[in-house]
Design a protein around this nucleic acid. Structure first.
Length: 695
DNA sequence: GTAGGGTTAG
């Protein structure tokens, strides 16, 4: 009596230690921190913990597994003589809890304390270097490994290979992998995933084949997940199907992660039927991840209504959509300019705390921008608490698409001065903004600052923006010179910009060069032939026009039909050129005729330069008068209240003549008309357009 | 005796 328990207890013997350690281990496995703390308290009272490094190491492991790093660290620092396992446990615990920098520091301290790292410590440190994508530190660890003979050990080498892959050093990674005498499923996953994440999808698929051919290791669920993701990226449903059958043979088809990967693979390969089938066979109901994959697949294939169906069904099953689900859905609304549905999703988001997610906030901002409501878009940006690079990029892009070049430049300056680093996407938007507003000098200034001031190597899309910038400004000679001096070849966008500019300026020679390059890069591009024949037509070279038409006919290339969409009375109405299928066609026709007379009185002159010469003038004017965007605007004028803005969406670029006509229509009707064509927005009002005729 | 790696949605 009167003695505190353990006051005189001796260091526990081996049997006692083992007995006490077992519950700690199982507690670490389940991650039950409360139980862990109780066990800890009991050990302190018994005096066993303080006396035994062995038990303290167990406690550190337990706390690390329960994500209580503070307690683990406190225990470690209280140890009079941490042993090899103590250090190793600490380093791995820090790495497990994503404290990668601290893990590497601890590794250095361990060596300074004169202890040779174990393979366990080395592999944990390599994992930390991989997570940080720190190839210099990683290579140092590699050297340490070589010196102490652990560089080919299974765990160390897997992590080193992973580290090199995550740092983009593929050759180094492969060298480490090839030197491994023993490779298990984890090592193969690192290889396959490494290739896939670096964009070498074919090599990822080949690595999976090599693994099967070697026949030493069976694929586990992780291997299947990675290779499915790679084959989804390849958009190769046949490869995916082969792997799917292997999945079934190996019995992994009911694993949640594998099923999600399968859904995602089929969705990426645009095989939505099979993607949906994988989801339907789920015996445990849906997970938010696989349903989101399916939704995203429908959105990417522009089947927004089906995506919406899955979304509703998901909620019916009681599964809450998360930030990924919402951003996919909102992206779909943005693509199709579905303002009503987008606003409904916004309303649902306000009820959750997901709205603070910067990705979701940015997709919302983008959606309102793409629906033409730029002021709402800017307001949303201002409501986002922390402006990440994604949010800034979205804002700059919206401003660019609406032709607000100056504001885009200002936004960029605000972004950089608030300490957010621009990335290559930022520069695509910024340069587009400059290009669309004729800010050539500013655009060049920012383009030239990319590498030196921001450490971003300009890529082909940036070079193409500059081509577009010169082209829109009519500086075709400089565009041509720029192309010759570029270190990379222009992409299709660059050549299309140049072709468009050549069409506007009637430059046949350069236009033909651009057209030839587009046909090589995008054999299915239908617009090239149309633009090219437009150049010939504007120069009156009707023989060449005929030749292009014949080429189109022979190669069965059809001109992409122009469509316009307009939302009125909660319904989306679609119109084609000379389209008289709408139930209100007679009224629309009358309105168009009336508008035509009124704008002609105001000074509108039809621009028939690009139309075939074999038509008489009346026929030419008739074609222009019934372009889809004009029918859509006429319909909106007769069916919507005068207070609502008219927002028309087009799948092609607006033609010069419609652009002129809509300016006049906005004047005679005193209405704001917003047209979103496939390259940007035009806000018509009071006889002017926001693009100031610069497009 | 105690410590370790890879996987599924923007």
């Amino acid at each position: 009596m009167g003695k505190f328990p353990g006051q005189h207890s001796r260091p526990p013997d081996t049997d006692t230690s083992l007995r006490l350690a077992a519950p700690l281990q199982s507690c670490g496995r389940t991650g039950d921190l409360r139980l862990g703390r109780r066990l800890h308290a009991r050990l302190v009272l018994s005096g066993a913990a303080a006396a035994s490094a062995f038990l303290t190491n167990h406690l550190i492991t337990m706390y690390s597994h329960c994500a209580d790093v503070t307690s683990a660290l406190r225990l470690f620092h209280a140890m009079p003589r941490p042993n090899l396992v103590s250090w190793t446990t600490l380093i791995s615990g820090l790495a497990q809890n994503s404290m990668h920098g601290d893990a590497l520091t601890a590794f250095a301290s361990m060596r300074r304390a004169g202890l040779a790292p174990t393979q366990f410590a080395l592999s944990s440190a390599a994992r930390a270097a991989a997570a940080l994508a720190a190839p210099l530190l990683g290579a140092q660890l590699h050297c340490v490994g070589v010196r102490i003979g652990f560089d080919s050990e299974l765990f160390v080498a897997s992590n080193l290979a992973d580290m090199y892959f995550k740092s983009g050093l593929l050759a180094e990674a492969c060298r480490v992998f090839d030197q491994m005498p023993h490779k298990d499923a984890v090592a193969w996953t690192a290889l396959i995933d490494g290739y896939a994440k670096n964009g070498s999808l074919e090599k990822a698929a080949l690595a999976f084949r090599a693994m099967k051919r070697e026949g030493l290791v069976g694929a586990d669920q992780h291997v299947f997940c990675t290779v499915l993701s790679a084959s989804g990226g390849l958009k190769d449903a046949w490869l995916g199907r082969t792997i799917h059958s292997s999945v079934i043979k190996a019995g992994f088809q009911l694993e949640v992660a594998v099923r999600n990967a399968l859904t995602d693979m089929y969705a990426n390969a645009a095989d939505m039927e099979d993607a949906a089938r994988v989801l339907r066979i789920d015996p445990q109901g849906w997970t938010v991840v696989s349903a989101t994959s399916l939704i995203d697949g429908y959105i990417e294939t522009e089947r927004v209504e089906e995506a919406l169906r899955i979304f509703i069904e998901l909620r019916r099953q009681g599964v809450e959509p998360n930030e990924f689900t919402f951003s996919s859905m909102i992206k779909g609304c943005a693509m199709q300019a579905l303002l009503e549905q987008g606003a409904q999703l916004h309303a649902q988001l306000i009820k959750t705390n997901i709205i603070s997610d910067s990705f979701v906030g940015s997709t919302l901002l983008d959606m309102y921008g793409k629906c033409g409501l730029i002021s709402l878009s800017i307001q949303l940006f201002n409501e986002i608490e922390h402006h990440t690079d994604i949010a800034w990029n979205a804002l700059i892009n919206v401003l660019a698409q609406h032709g607000h070049g100056r504001e885009a430049v200002q936004a960029f300056d605000r972004m950089t001065s608030s300490g957010i680093r621009p990335n290559h996407i930022t520069f695509v938007s910024l340069l587009t903004a400059c290009s669309h507003s004729g800010l050539v000098d500013e655009g060049l200034k920012y383009f030239n600052s990319m590498k030196d001031a921001h450490g971003i190597e300009p890529k082909e899309e940036h070079y193409s923006c500059i081509i577009d910038m010169y082209g829109r400004a009519g500086r075709l000679d400089e565009a041509e010179k720029f192309i010759h001096e570029m270190p990379v070849k222009p992409n299709a966008y660059g050549w299309c910009s140049l072709l468009g500019a050549c069409r506007m300026r009637g430059n046949k020679e350069l236009g033909e060069v651009a057209a030839k390059n587009i046909m090589e890069l995008e054999p299915d591009n239908t617009g090239v032939h149309v633009s090219l024949s437009g150049i010939y037509a504007s120069l009156g070279q009707w023989e060449d026009v005929k030749a292009v038409r014949k080429l189109m006919w022979d190669s069965r290339i059809k001109k992409l039909p122009g469509f316009s969409w307009v939302d009125a009375n909660n319904k989306t109405h679609v119109f084609a050129s000379e389209d008289w299928s709408h139930p209100q066609q007679e009224k629309i026709y009358k309105k168009l005729e009336e508008l035509y007379e009124r704008i002609k009185e105001e000074g509108y002159v039809p621009d028939t330069r690009f139309l075939p010469c074999n038509l008489d003038n009346a026929a030419k004017e008739r074609i222009l008068r019934y372009h889809s965007e004009r029918i859509a605007v006429a319909f909106a004028l007769i069916s919507m209240p005068a207070t609502k803005p008219i927002i028309v969406k087009k799948n092609l670029r607006i033609c010069v003549d419609c652009h002129s006509a809509l300016k006049f229509i906005s004047k005679v009707e005193s209405r704001d008309i917003i047209v979103r064509d496939n390259s940007r927005f035009h806000h018509f009002g009071k006889g002017r357009c926001s693009c100031e005729d610069y497009w």
